[in-house]
Simulated scan of single mutants.
Amino acid sequence: MTAPRTAVAGGDITVPGRPVGVTHGDAAYWARVHRITAEAPPLADHQRAVIRAAFHQPRKPKEQAA
């Protein structure tokens, strides 16, 4: 599922959860994201396992119906 996008004045596309005024294809935004993630310390094995497990959980019946 992707985040819904809405058009605002001036034709810019906004995505919920992004700072105001940042459009989907803003190169400066993505450069900042890549810089921050490059500076982050590497994940430990148990942290990777927790993240992997969260994404591989079976769907609940309510989610299956959607």
Rank of each mutant, 00 (worst) to 15 (best):
A44C: 02
Q57F: 13
I51S: 00
A28E: 15
A3K: 04
V33T: 14
E63S: 10
T14D: 02
V33I: 15
A40Y: 03
G10P: 00
E63D: 13
E39A: 14
V8P: 00
T14M: 08
P16Q: 09
V33M: 10
L43E: 05
H24F: 14
H56Q: 15
R52T: 10
V50T: 07
G17H: 00
G25Y: 05
A53C: 05
T14L: 07
H46L: 03
V22T: 13
Q57C: 07
H34K: 11
A65Y: 10
A54W: 05
R59S: 09
Q57E: 14
V15S: 07
R5A: 12
P61K: 10
V15H: 04
R32S: 08
K60M: 08
A53R: 10
G17W: 01
H56L: 06
R48K: 08
A53V: 04
R18V: 03
G25S: 13
T14Q: 15
P41C: 04
A28P: 01
A9Q: 12
A3D: 06
P61F: 09
K60E: 12
L43A: 08
E39G: 05
D45E: 13
R52K: 09
E39L: 11
G11I: 07
T14V: 15
A27Y: 05
E63M: 11
A31S: 11
T23E: 03
P4D: 01
V8T: 07
P58K: 08
D12R: 12
M1W: 06
K60V: 10
A7Y: 12
A40H: 08
E63C: 03
R35C: 01
A7P: 04
T6H: 09
R18F: 15
A31G: 05
V33G: 04
A66G: 12
A40S: 06
T37K: 12
A28W: 03
A49F: 00
T37A: 08
W30T: 02
A31R: 07
D45C: 03
Q64E: 14
P19V: 10
R5Q: 10
G21N: 10
D26V: 04
R35W: 02
T2L: 08
A38R: 10
F55P: 01
R5K: 14
R18P: 00
D12K: 11
M1V: 13
A66V: 13
R32L: 07
A49H: 01
P61N: 05
P58C: 07
V22D: 00
G21D: 00
E39P: 03
A27K: 15
D45T: 14
P41E: 13
P16S: 02
A9R: 12
H46D: 15
A28R: 06
I51R: 01
P61D: 08
R59A: 13
L43H: 05
R35M: 01
I36N: 11
K60I: 11
A40V: 01
H34F: 09
V22K: 07
K60Y: 06
G17L: 10
K62E: 15
P4S: 07
Q47I: 03
V20L: 14
R18D: 06
P41Y: 12
W30C: 01
A9T: 11
Q47H: 06
V33C: 14
W30P: 03
